[in-house]
Each structure stands twice: as structure tokens, then as C-alpha cells.
Design a protein around this nucleic acid. Structure first.
Lengths: 145, 145
DNA sequence: ACTAAGATTGAGATATAATCTCAATGGAGA
DNA sequence: TCTCCATTGAGATTATATCTCAATCTTAGT
């Protein structure tokens, strides 16, 4: 079991819940993937690997993973909700290609700072944000893709 | 008929389409509202006012309004898709209250500039973006609401 | 005014994503 | 072992949005 799964196990057990095979299976699949993945895709992967985890369990486990802080739920807009693991990932936002659907990440600490200021000015207490830029990725503009 | 409806009429007719009573009705309802409104809410309003515009027509007309540039479709995340008219509205982003659901607008031109730079660095050709900050509005933090 | 071509409409079917229900299962502690 | 309660899967349900298609309008041409 990898380090992230172990952390998840600890989280689960610290809440007095059970680290079941189904939960482990879902968690490991999430941690193993290095792409943004949506819940239905994840379910399909698991099914094709012979796991019997049901849709309900997949969604429930994803909620637990998000709760634990090990996984982040990202709203890419256009109905795309994906998950990414947080380990070793500093905060970033997303560039979403409207042609090929690919998602790149980018960091811009100053944007975060400006957001803070905007919130102060508006007397708004921020807890999180979502910034997506839509357009065309390199491959889709150079015609090489 | 107000100026925005007139502009919409012009847009519709410039495309060789018909400015039907249904389309007028939907457009005027959108232009009359000063809040962000979602499609189902709009449909309900129209029904309660005796309009017979169907769901299909409401959605279709909203698409036309967005196409025309007079209305913008905003993805507030969490499955909330709302529409706002653009007339006299400079570009802005949104502060979404997680408690009362209210939506405030804010402007921060520098953020836009930084986004441009981030795109350049990534060889990404932006066409639009969506920035929502989630948290608690003034009323919901001071306990006055 | 008549007609043909094509735009528009509403009702309801369909699609999609996610959540909920509930009976059956199974682990943990007394 | 027994009891309690967490967990599960199958399928029902909800919510939102889009699609289908026959009926109805509009308009242009005659």
C-alpha cells in the first residue's frame, strides 16, 4: 500500500470508520492515476479491472477522499467534475482546451493575492476558489494535433 | 420594447430568423431581471405570468441571447448555471456565498492581465475564463443575516 | 389569395450525472 | 456467540438539459 493510501486509511480509522477493500480499491485507483479523472470514468476503470465496487461506493469514497484533504474535487465547468490528488501539488488553476478537452495546470501566486484583496474590499470571507481559462492548447493551435 | 430587446430583434432578424412573441417574451423577462437567473427559474416566472413559452423554447432562446452577446452564461459551480445581461456591465467575476447563495460581482483588471501572461507562458490561446470565489458574504459573517 | 419551403413551437421522450433507498452483509466489541 | 451498527450494491429517484417530431406559423413567389 502506498503512502497516500496509508494516510487515507489513517483518516478513515481516525473517524471510527472501516477501511474496507472497496474503499482501498477506489483510493488506490485514484492515487495511481496521474490525470484528472471523473467519477464515471473511475467507476468504469474499476469495473474493467474486475472490482465490484458499485457506483454508490465510488461516489461515497470520493467524498471521503475529498474530506480527508488527500484529493481535490475540481469543477472544470461545462459539467466536468474531476478529481486530482493533492500530494506534492501546490495550488494551481486550470487551462481547459475547448477542442481536445485536455487540461493543463498553471500557477500564478499573484492572482491568489489579488483575489484576497478583492475579497477584503468586498467584505467577503473566502474559503476557496475556482479559476478556469478556456481556449485552445498548444497542440490545437499549431495544427500539430 | 426596450433597447436591449430591440437589439435582440435586430440580431435575430439579421440571421434571417423570426422575432416571435415567444422569443420576445423570454428576452424581455431576462432583460427585466436585475439578478442572475437560471433557466428553470426563468421558465417558472414566465409560466406564472401566463406565458406559454415551453421549456424547449426558453432554453433555445437563451442560447440565442448568448450568441447575440447581449447575455452571458455564467457557471457558478456546484451545478449553478445562470444568465446575466451584459449591457453596461464591464467584465467581472463572482463571489459566491456558500451560506445564503448570494452572488456579488467584483472587478480586478490586473487578474485578467496575469491570466494573459499565464496563457502566454503556457502557449495557450484563451477565449474566455471563469473565476468564482467561494466563501461567506458580509451578511453571513457578521451574523446580521 | 394560394402554395411551397422552411422556421418555430410544445409536449413529452431521452440523456446524463449524481444521490438516495433499503434490504442484505459483515466486522467489532461485549 | 450475539448485538449493534457501518457498509454495500442494485436499482429507483432526482435534477438539469437536450432532443424528437408532428403541428403550426411566416414568408416569398406566383
Amino acid at each position: 500500500m502506498n503512502s497516500e493510501s496509508l494516510q487515507f486509511k489513517n483518516y478513515i480509522e481516525s473517524k471510527g470508520l472501516l477501511f474496507t477493500p472497496e474503499r482501498q480499491c477506489v483510493a488506490e485507483e485514484v492515487f495511481a492515476s496521474h490525470n484528472h479523472m471523473d467519477a464515471e470514468e473511475l467507476l468504469k476503470h474499476l469495473k474493467s479491472k474486475g472490482s465490484k465496487a458499485s457506483r454508490a461506493t465510488v461516489y461515497r469514497t470520493l467524498d471521503l477522499l475529498v474530506e480527508s484533504g488527500l484529493v481535490k474535487k475540481i469543477d472544470l465547468g461545462e459539467g466536468r467534475l474531476v478529481y486530482e490528488h493533492t500530494a506534492g501539488h501546490p495550488h494551481h488553476d486550470h487551462l481547459v482546451c475547448l477542442k481536445c478537452g485536455s487540461v493543463q495546470e498553471f500557477e500564478e501566486p499573484l492572482i491568489e493575492q489579488l483575489q484576497e484583496w478583492a475579497c477584503e474590499k468586498a467584505n467577503f470571507k473566502p474559503t476557496g476558489h475556482s479559476l478556469n481559462i478556456y481556449g485552445y492548447c498548444r497542440g490545437c493551435t499549431t495544427g500539430k494535433r
